[in-house]
Amino acid sequence: MPTGTAIRDVREQLFDAAERILLRDGPTALTSRAVTTEAGCAKGVLHRHFADFDAFLAELVADRIARLDDQAAALRGAAGTGTVAGNLTEALTTLFDSVAVGIVGLVIARDGLRDRLRRTAPTGLPLLAEASAMLASYLAAERDLGRIAPDADVGTLAPTLIGAAHLLFADPGGPPDPGAVHRTVTAVVGGPAPSAGAR
Rank of each mutant, 00 (worst) to 15 (best):
R116L: 14
L157V: 05
A121L: 12
Q71M: 12
G174I: 14
G82T: 08
T37N: 12
A42C: 04
R24P: 08
A109Y: 03
P126V: 13
T156M: 01
A158C: 05
Y138Q: 04
D70N: 06
D63E: 13
A152E: 04
L168N: 01
L139G: 02
H49D: 10
S98H: 09
I21M: 05
K43A: 14
L14A: 08
L167F: 03
T120N: 12
R119G: 12
A73E: 12
V45Q: 03
H49Y: 15
L125A: 06
A129K: 10
A196S: 11
Q13Y: 03
A196G: 04
H47D: 05
E59L: 08
G77C: 05
R33Y: 09
T5W: 05
L168A: 07
G190V: 10
D153P: 02
T3M: 07
C41R: 07
A72D: 11
E38L: 03
G163P: 01
V35Y: 01
G179D: 07
E38W: 06
T5F: 06
P122H: 09
P192Q: 14
A152I: 01
G102W: 00
V35S: 00
R48Q: 13
I108S: 06
R118I: 04
S132W: 02
V181A: 08
L135T: 12
L113P: 07
V61F: 05
R147W: 00
Q13A: 13
L92M: 12
D9G: 04
G112T: 05
A152H: 01
G163S: 11
T156S: 01
G173W: 10
G155Q: 00
A100W: 00
L106R: 01
F50N: 08
G26Q: 08
R119Y: 05
R64G: 02
P2S: 07
A187C: 06
V10N: 07
L95E: 06
A42Q: 10
L60V: 03
L92A: 05
R67S: 15
D97H: 10
A91T: 12
